[in-house]
Each structure stands twice: as C-alpha cells, then as structure tokens.
C-alpha cells in the first residue's frame, strides 16, 4: 500500500523556538498525481517543503518520499526528488549554462553538457545562457530554477510558490511545465496561495492552516464545499443594508461590506443560486444594482469558512 504513495507523512512537527510551524502534518500523495498545498502566508508551506526535502529535520513524526525514509535515508530521498524553493536556489555568480552544467555533473547526468543545453532550450533560456543568473528577471530565474530541478527526471518534484510574483506569461510557462511533467508521470507537490492555481494544476488540494492539513480533497469537492462568493455593487451607501437583507435570504452567509465600493458580498453553497436569479431577486426588492457577480471565493473566504469557525469545521471536514 505504502509504495503507491510518492509522499506519505505522519504527524510531522517543526518548531522554531516559540513558533510551532508544523503541528502534525499528515499528507498522502499518490504516485503520479499533483498535490496543491494551499495556504496563506505563514501557514507552514515552506516549512513543510523544507522538511520533506531534507533541508530541515523534523522534531517529530515520520515521512517516506518515493519509498525512502526521510530521516534515515536522506541521500536516497535526495536522489529521488527535485526541488524549486520559494526563493531562487541557483548560483547568481555563475551564468545560466554554468549553473545547469554544474548541477548536471553533481547529479551524475550522462552527457551533462548536452543535458544542460536541452534544458536551456526547453525553458527558452538559450539566449540568456551566457549571462550571470543574478542579471535574470524573476521569471527567467524561476525557469532556470525549475530546469535545475529537472536535470535527472525526479520521482517527486517539490515547487514552493512557483508563480508568486510572476507576470502572467511566465506563470503560464510554469503551469505548462508542471502539466507536462504530470503527464509524464512525475508526482508534484506544489504550494500556492492562489486557489485558482491549485484548481488549475492539482488533482488534490490540501488546505494548510497553522501547520496542519485542515481539509483535503479534489478541487471539485473543495469548491462544492466552499461554494461561491456572491457580490453586488449598489448605487449608493444607503442601499447597502437592503442588499444585505436580500443576500442573507438567498445565501444564508455572513455579509461582508466594502463601504468604499458600495459592495456587499457573502458566500453561498446553494447550487441553485445562479446569477440571473440573484439579479432578479435584488431587482424585485428594488435594490439599485450596478454590478453583480458569482465567482469562486478568495482564499480568505475559503479559510474563513473551512477553518475559523469550529462548528463549520466539524460539519465540513467530517
């Protein structure tokens, strides 16, 4: 059974002095799947990746990566993984080509130089290959980093916030690379702060909250669980309470007020609530509507709903 999981962790704990960054992290990632570890800043995503990639020693708990024990066989784990950390982990004092050739040698890749050139080509870095990596743009450095993680095909690839801070074009390139790898059968664990990214790439999402998995499941079940966010913009502030009353009747969710934009919103899990119905009901109630939308909730909403209120958590996670 265990051999079908590329990553299997139980009760991983990590403290930094007073800060309890991981409080019993349980993960089970099936071979050949993409797992999105979704969480806000400070949730413990980077700590989880650093523990699972042998950079940090866990204080408690155990994990097997590609069948190897994390603590007892770190070198076997290192042979099986590729890692792209949250911050650049290439040598800025070397050129892009020199970086990849060095890592290829250290990985004992056959034909190290040819392999480096292949990867430069694949990640559209050939033109910049002779420049120092410290002169690269954020997107180029990310691509070089990813290329460095793929010198020999890893059984498990770890990506820590691979697209944070990137422009849409670079983001799409990284997404495409992840999709290609997944199609090739590589297991991927990627962390992200964006629900959309997890939704786009992941077969399974684990919601990380304060160092433990608060919820996990497929994007579809997660979305069904958290519903959508209905938001209406009204013509003037006086109409906001009225809009809130109608929204409350339709969604039953707690209303959020944005006084600057004259906007009222709330989360709904009612699948029969559609945009036309929302507009009709508000119009019938005489609300001066300027704009209305029904979209996936923000990560904040997700967390509010899935982790903050104890009753909700029991209902939803059970």
């Amino acid at each position: 059974m265990t051999s079908t999981y590329a990553v299997l962790s139980e009760g991983l704990e990590k403290r930094f002095g007073e800060v309890h960054a991981l409080r019993g992290l349980d993960l089970a990632i099936a071979e050949g799947t993409v797992c999105g570890l979704l969480g806000p800043n400070g949730a413990g995503k980077t700590t989880a990746v650093r523990v699972l990639t042998t950079l940090l020693r866990p204080d408690a708990g155990s994990a097997r990566i590609a069948g190897h024990d994390l603590v007892r066989e770190p070198d076997a784990v290192r042979r099986a993984i590729g890692v792209t950390g949250q911050f650049a982990s290439v040598d800025g004092d070397l050129t892009g080509r020199e970086n990849l050739r060095l890592f290829a040698k250290l990985r004992r890749a056959p034909k190290a130089h040819a392999r480096a050139d292949d990867l430069l080509d694949r990640f559209e870095l050939t033109e910049a290959a002779g420049r120092l990596a410290s002169t690269y743009s954020g997107g180029m450095r990310r691509r070089l980093d990813l290329a460095a993680s793929l010198i020999t095909r890893p059984a498990v690839l770890f990506l820590d916030e691979p697209t944070t801070g990137l422009d849409p074009a670079s983001r799409n390139q990284i997404w495409q690379a992840v999709r290609d790898l997944a199609a090739d059968g590589t297991t991927v664990l990627l962390t992200t702060q964006y629900l959309e990214e997890a939704d786009q790439l992941a077969d399974d999402i684990a919601l990380l909250d304060e160092g433990r998995v608060a919820h996990s499941g497929s994007p579809a079940t997660l979305k069904a669980l958290i519903g959508s966010y209905a938001e209406v913009v009204v013509a003037h502030a006086d109409a906001m309470p009225q809009a809130a009353v109608v929204l409350d009747q339709l969604t039953g969710g707690e209303p959020h007020f944005d006084h600057e934009r004259h906007a009222v919103g709330s989360v709904t899990t009612d699948p029969t609530l559609t945009l036309p119905r929302l507009v009709r009901e508000l119009d019938a109630a005489g609300v001066p509507l300027l704009d209305a939308s029904l979209r996936p909730p923000s990560l904040d909403d997700v967390f509010l709903r899935l982790t903050d209120s104890p009753t909700d958590r029991k209902d939803l996670v059970a």
Binding site: T54, L55, R78
Partner: peptide, 17 residues
Amino acid sequence: ARDSHRGVMDRFRTLPM
C-alpha cells in the same frame, strides 16, 4: 558567507552529493 546566505546552498543540500 556569500554561499550560506544565498539560495544556492539549499540546492546543494538537496542534491545527493
């Protein structure tokens, strides 16, 4: 110090070297 305060050290530490 230049190595240890830059990310490349993390890459070396995750390589089977």
